[in-house]
Design a protein around this nucleic acid. Structure first.
Ligand SMILES: [Mn+2]
Ligand SMILES: [Mn+2]
Ligand SMILES: [Mn+2]
Ligand SMILES: [Mn+2]
Lengths: 219, 219
DNA sequence: TTTAATTTTTAGACAAATCTAAAAATTTGT
DNA sequence: ACAAATTTTTAGATTTGTCTAAAAATTAAA
């Protein structure tokens, strides 16, 4: 399995939550910042290897083998991110790009020992669940902040965008995993929200609210 | 800089200790388990990029930039090997192949923090010096065991072959870094040696003795 | 239900890295 | 010094992964 093939599998895995049928070629291309023609070529090759199912114009769907492999890559990505934060003093906005490289290192023992060193963590620095050795992924219960109504409250348990620009934006507003967030007001017009965090109030856009996940506290 | 280019630079760096002039194409090919024609192509490309000097039929010699880069890769390789042994319970015969992958991960901060986590180690699990951040390499004082005479004694400070088969062979004879080795007898015919380590005596081949480095204790 | 817009696939080209086979240069042996 | 052996380079091919431009299929709009 090449580095590039692994990246495609991981992308299809991450996207197929949002698509009932196959994941469209264009969706993969956009996510990977590449061209649709390249994606078309590659998914054909992956289908050849039976890592995914593919019928022309119908998008891609991981096979059992493909999903198994994708989950392994995700597990490695999230363990490495956790390592970088817990052991090497990285902040949550610095780890994604490095984990993109580290997730392709091949060694069963390495990942097993890393897991042990970290004390078998359940989630990564962005609140995402770390699949266990057998590929089981715990589904984290959460709702998008954008869907909260005025007056509702929740605890931040995850983000949907791990880019450093977004995470730094959250840092600026002192939003972090575990923080209690209250919706003081919600603008019908553009979906922007007035939030309260740690007795401070500020406004965030709908786009931002679409990338923050909360666990409901009172409703 | 691609992964393959880095591997070539590192190989030339490791080999040029043994060659006054340029490192021969064939030497590189053998070390990298590839074909001379591939090497010829690649060193031409690296010369193009001014990472090494190359005149037809004269072999390769690293430029200052090339050497700087090679040393960085070596530093990463040895820090990762140290990490695997010190933090992840690997033994010295298991780390080389994984470090071959990890040495290509790109992140200044990662390697800086790794160095800190390990307490700024001076040598790797095989006794090889770890270049510092500025690329300075301490020259370790050592002599090949094969060159020792009958009756001489030394402390094991390094190996010349980091393959797992050789290191496991050393383990079997309980030869490890720091062990005191005495040459009880030496066979003129084939260069094999009778050694004493920890009050046990055994015989090793000339090939093995050529891959063990000692620091002289009494002479 | 045709037409228009969008999505997806194909065709053809290209760069990186490798290989085999053959040619050229260098080194060695007599 | 000349022939033989060895080393190194070139020529041509292949695989992987990507791209642009054009064709084909699907979906949306009028
Ligand atoms: Mn990530
Ligand atoms: Mn993450
Ligand atoms: Mn090594
Ligand atoms: Mn080493």
């Amino acid at each position: 399995m090449t580095l590039s093939e692994e990246n495609y599998l991981k992308t299809v895995y991450n996207l197929q939550k949002h698509y009932k049928k196959g994941v469209p070629t264009n969706a993969i291309a956009e996510e990977m910042e590449t061209k649709a023609s390249s994606v078309s070529d590659m998914i054909k090759r992956l289908a050849e290897k039976e890592l995914l199912f593919y019928k022309k114009y119908q998008g891609a769907k991981l096979s059992e083998t493909g999903e198994k492999h994708a989950v392994k890559v995700v597990r490695k990505h999230r363990l490495w991110e956790t390592f970088l934060v817990e052991k090497l003093n990285f902040s949550w906005d610095e780890v994604h790009d490095i984990a993109e490289q580290l997730e392709h290192i091949e060694s069963e023992k390495l990942i097993k020992e890393l897991d042990k060193l970290l004390g078998y963590p359940k989630t990564d620095p962005h609140g995402d669940p770390i699949p266990d050795e057998d590929g089981n992924v715990v589904k984290v219960e959460k709702r998008m902040l954008a869907e909260f109504k005025k007056g509702e409250q929740g605890v931040c348990v995850g983000v949907n965008d791990s880019s450093s620009s977004f995470l730094q934006y959250l840092d600026k507003h002192q939003i972090a995993l575990g923080k209690v967030i209250t919706v003081k007001d919600k603008e019908e017009f553009d979906g922007s929200m007035q939030l309260e965090v740690d007795h401070r109030e500020f406004n965030i856009s709908n786009l931002a609210a679409n990338n923050i996940y909360l666990k409901t506290v009172n409703s």
